[in-house]
Design a protein around this nucleic acid. Sequence first.
DNA 1: GCGGAAACGGAACGTACCGTGTCGTGTCGT
DNA 2: ACGACACGACACGGTACGTTCCGTTTCCGC
Lengths: 196, 196
Amino acid sequence: MITPPSSVRRSERSRRAILRSALDLCTERGYGHVTIEAIAADAGVSKKTIYRWWPSKGAVLLEAFTDALIDATPFVDTGDIGADLRSHVAGAVKLLSVPPFGPAYAGILSELHHDDRLAQQLREQLVDPRVEEAIGRLRSAQDQGQIPPGADLPLAVEMLYGPVYYRHVLRKPVQDEKTIAALVDHVLRSLRAPGY
Amino acid sequence: MITPPSSVRRSERSRRAILRSALDLCTERGYGHVTIEAIAADAGVSKKTIYRWWPSKGAVLLEAFTDALIDATPFVDTGDIGADLRSHVAGAVKLLSVPPFGPAYAGILSELHHDDRLAQQLREQLVDPRVEEAIGRLRSAQDQGQIPPGADLPLAVEMLYGPVYYRHVLRKPVQDEKTIAALVDHVLRSLRAPGY
DNA sequence: GCGGAAACGGAACGTACCGTGTCGTGTCGT
DNA sequence: ACGACACGACACGGTACGTTCCGTTTCCGC
């Protein structure tokens, strides 16, 4: 996450103040009003200090968001793949439904299309590892006979996360538990059913 | 689409030049360099004229993109729901894969989170009508016995489009025909299979 | 036709934020 | 102890914003 002059002398105090201010501003005034200058002013920090360690405000918020997401959506294994996927997806949906994390992630996604480095960073540090974890959990269910061998697990992950992103990006009202349960059930069915 | 002072005296010449310049600039220099000032300069038009008819550059591009999308992804009914969905999704993916439409739509999506009016406009004028069309096509397949009665058709549409948005937003390499076919097959299976 | 309302192009304005540079201070490794 | 370096602060030029003013052109209604 730290970008340029890796150093031990970095001020942890400033780092925390910057991440906190970024999220706070996102809550109070919305992502559009989160600017480098506003973060610096709110955190009592020089702009230069922010630019020294992060390439953009998107990168600042990505670091803050990643920490929160990993805590909020662990991959558990109770032996029931359906229940575990439901609680996992519900955790992600819930995190996205509350400020500042929903707006923050929407803002991060909105920067991807004009910021190649941020897009790569998001995929490498957040999306890809968690997709791998999800596939791992599905493979475990496969070993327990809850999913047929040969099932297309990467596709299953995209079918799970796809609608969540779709809703979040289009800003449709959040999904309730019932919708999440129906989604998970349909994805699992699609893996089990005989070929079309 | 026309926003404020509905009038017959609007210059169709300026309107076309603005939409064309917006898409051209998107191709040549990327969405990030499409600004109201650049559009005005390229189209030989006053900024005031743009602000008179559109509330933002996102609204300009939404109007241009909508026209293109409707042409590119019709809903046909050959009697084979699988084939029809494959060609429909392939049309959408293909449109998103070529400039200026891919970058333009990514840019539009990126504006939604800080522009409530644009988000509402996108849903009402583009997404919701096409979701309804998709549900209509699925219902027709239901009547022909290709999909069981009682299937959750709205959810099916989200499972179809979700991964497309997911990939587009995260800027993962475009889906090939095989992936699209697998996606469509899985969605149809999930509707047919016995309950989980 | 003719007069006037309204849309037009062009130019300039102040504001906001960007990303960078400079400078003096303070602090942390060696 | 000392020197390197991160720090805060402040100022800079640059870009795009959204608005305002001006003089011109276009077109509707009379």
